[in-house]
Structure formats: C-alpha cells, structure tokens
Design a protein around this nucleic acid. Structure first.
Lengths: 244, 244
DNA sequence: AGCCTACTCTGTACGTCATACACGATTATT
DNA sequence: AATAATCGTGTATGACGTACAGAGTAGGCT
C-alpha cells in the first residue's frame, strides 16, 4: 500500500478522520471554492494566498494547514473547477466523444485561467479522472487496445485545449493587445504589416487574401467541428482497420 | 500603416535606427539569449529580471530599456527559442508535416519551459510564424481552402503540445512527485490506490490491467506516431473529399 | 479530573520579485 | 556650444510566498 503524495490524499479525502486539537474552521473545499471564485472574477493573478485567506475570513498562514503550498492549491483548483462529464445516454462512441470534447473546450473558455494553469503533473484529481474514464468507456466496445484508447483521449483533450487557447487569445488576448497599442491592431493587420512575402510566402498570401482580417470565420464553431471531425474520422478509420 | 505594439516592433527590428543618447551596450538579442540560457539550465523560475541582468552584466533596471516588462521578455523568449523549420526538400505534404510535427514536439521536450510559457497572444514572432508558413506551404497543392489549412496546422501544433506535455509530466514531473512523497509513487500506483472501480470502471480496469504500470509503453515513440497518423489520416481523408 | 500532546490559527519577519522614479552620464541634433 | 533625448544606475516600494514561534483548544490518556 503505497503512500500517497499529500495533495493527492487531500483531493481524495484520505486524511485521517479523528484528529486532536481544535476543530478546523475550514476545509479544503471551502478554500478551493473561494480561490476559484477569485480566479473567475478577477483572474488567476489575483489568486494570492492573502486574497484567498481574506475571502474565507482567515489569516493568510492558516491556509497552510490545508494546503502545502500555493502550487498545491492551484493543482486542487484545476481539478475542482471541472464539472461532471456528460452522461453517456445511448450515444454512439463518436457522438459521445464529440460532445465530450466540445464540453471540454467550453469549460476552458468559460474558465480561461485553466489555460494558464499548466499542469506539471498528470491528472490525478477525481473529476478530471472521471472525464478520462468516460472517454475510455465510450471506446470500450470498439476493439481498440488500451494504449489506443488512451491516446485517442489524449488527442481529443489536446485538441480542445489548443482550440480554446487560440480562440481565447484571439478574443480577449487580442483586445488586450489592441488596448495596449494606440492604433487599430487586429492580429491580421499586424501580420500584414510585418510579414515579408518573400520569406513567408504561404502565410502572407493567406493573410492578404483576407482570412485573418475579421477574427470570425476561423474562430467560428464550424472550425472547431471541422478539426473535431478530422480527429474522429481518424479514430473511426483506426477502428475499422483490422489490427495494429 | 498601423502602429505596431512595442514588443512586436522589437521582435521584428522595427525600431528607429538613429537615436540620440549614449550608445546602447546591449540589444534585445543578447538579453533574450541570456534569459534562454538561464531557462535552459535552471528552469523558468530562475528567469528573474535580476538574474538575467546579472547574466549580461548590467543593473536590473537597465533591461527595461529593451523590454517593456517581464511578460514581454517571456514573449520574445518564446519566439527566439524556436529554431528554423525543416526544409521542404521534395517531401510529400504528409511526410513533411510528419517531421514538422515531430520536430515541434522534440523542441518542446528539449526546452520544457516552453510548455510553462502560456501564450496569451497568438504567435507574432518571426520564427514561429515561419513554422506556420511552412506548414501552410506544404498544404498548398492539396486543394484545401485557407481555413482548412490553418486549422490543420493548429491541430498538429496542438497535438505536439499535448504529447510533449504528457511525456514530460510523466518523465520529469513524475520524478518530482516521487521525490516529494516517501514511498514508491509511480503514476499508475497512485491511480491504483485511489480509483474506485465502481465510479471509474473503464479507467481502473485499464490501470489494473497494467497499462500505466511502467511509463514506457505509452510514452513511447510509437504512441506519438500513432496519434500523428491519426491526424494525418484525417487530413488525407479531407483532401480526398470532393468539397466542403 | 487533570495532564499531555497534537493540532489550529495568528502575528511577525525575511527574502525575492517586478517595477516606479529620479539622477548623472553620454551623444546626436540644432 | 547648447539642447534634448536616451542610456545605465541606485534607491525605494509594495506585493508575494512562506518559515517560525507562540497562544489557544480539545481529544486521549492516566
């Protein structure tokens, strides 16, 4: 019976139940909720130990009774911010994974600070693992082997992440940029300004033909579906293939 | 003629050439190189304005003559750390994009701090855009429209990123974790310990059947190729399709 | 009942960080 | 030669993460 790292133990409520001293006035969930609320409203930068402590009405150092470090808090946040995965109903694997991926992306767009939170460890929280489980489960009747299923889930997660990053950085990030510089500074205009057609032939042709002028048209939902179908087609082809 | 945001102007050497005061003792490139060297050897956390300034032999505040903020420095680093893309030679689009994606992943693994550097703005530096250009160029004979080409490049980038993140977090990140807790704490063992088969049926079955026991076997190169082929198959199918 | 001990929260303190500001030195332009 | 812009430095500020010591609290033991 291996010993769990402390964060993991806390995330899974594996702390010993009977304790000695004064009854704790908080629990990890309250702290996490407060931190998430701050991140939602004021951004990840505003999530400081002081701010979180103030939010739950406690001295900053009190948080360290529940969390080993700020990094741990962020790790827990990254899991707690995730809602339960969608129900399978009686969807085909393909339909299920399509909404699974879409919801992943929507989550990342609704809580963009999750994008800033680089996970330096693989997912180990209950909620993220639940999502993973459901994706694997959806593929269970397909004859894929474990590694293939796992990789498929990885690819879909990655796609949601990339798409969310791009969409968000062209939306909000673009506005930040535009605010910083005086003139009109849409992404496309910057590229037009800067690209030399000789060294960037394909890209500058594309820019000049207008693709990036208005950020709609390639940040649209249709484009997300396009890439998603690409991936699902690939998986489908793999399933149809005899063996590896 | 739009006005460029200051970082962009600096990255593209669009600064006015004749200046008044004393001759600058540095330039952006030296600073960036020094910062990258620190990040390579001591990690991104060691990249502080003080450290970078010390590395180039200058007072911390001097850096602000070349860079508006630390964030800007990181943005420039993220571009400068990228080598030139591979030559097209006479490779098929598929072969080219395969090595293109693989090299992207290899770069991220060799400079893992790039993974920590979340880009809150779309790529605007000369080197990253060069990679983008080459990917688009490789698809130029395929009949895909601009949006499709762009999305294809996005998907491949995202895959490289996801794979690198996973591989890295299971390699180095896993070791960090194991160092923090006393016992043997391989990822698989943690999951075995923590997962309830009732609520995590698919995942716990997979874990118990041994997939994640040794991290080789699904961090291997074969698995990278697997996902990559998945994506390329998808793109190929799209090309073969009559129209959209 | 009463002591011990583990645990909770607080206050203070330290080192690090990004960066604002004012200054003297330097150089191209007038 | 005078002006004005630019460079590098030194100092200062406020925020941050967290180490540490201590005071209060309550369960487990005798």
């Amino acid at each position: 019976m291996a010993e769990l790292p402390p964060v993991v133990a806390r995330m899974w409520d594996r702390e010993p139940t009977t304790r000695r001293g004064p009854r704790p006035r908080l629990d990890l969930a309250t702290i996490t909720t407060a931190a998430i609320e701050i991140a939602d409203t004021e951004g990840l930068a505003a999530v400081s130990m002081s701010n979180v402590a103030a939010q739950v009405g406690v001295a900053p150092m009190a948080l360290y009774r529940y969390v080993g470090s700020k990094d741990e808090l962020l790790t827990v946040m990254a899991d707690s911010a995730v809602p339960p995965p969608p129900e399978r109903e009686n969807l085909s694997w393909r339909a299920y994974l399509a909404t699974w991926t879409r919801l992943t992306r929507d989550l990342l767009l609704s809580r963009p600070w999750l994008l800033d939170l680089r996970q330096s460890t693989p997912p180990m929280g209950p909620r993220r693992l639940l999502w993973l489980d459901r994706a694997l489960d959806a593929l269970s009747g397909t004859g894929l082997d474990d590694g293939q299923k796992f990789n498929a889930a990885t690819v879909l997660t990655g796609y949601a992440l990339t798409d969310a990053t791009l969409t968000h950085s062209l939306g909000a990030g673009g506005k930040e940029l535009a605010a910083r510089a005086k003139g009109a500074t849409e992404y496309g205009e910057i590229l037009t300004e800067v690209l030399d057609p000789a060294t960037y032939p394909a890209l500058s042709a594309m820019v000049r033909s207008g693709l990036l002028r208005d950020s709609t048209g390639w940040t649209e939902d249709a484009d997300f579906r396009f890439g998603l179908d690409l991936l699902l087609d690939g998986i489908e082809a793999l399933i149809a293939r005899p063996a590896r």
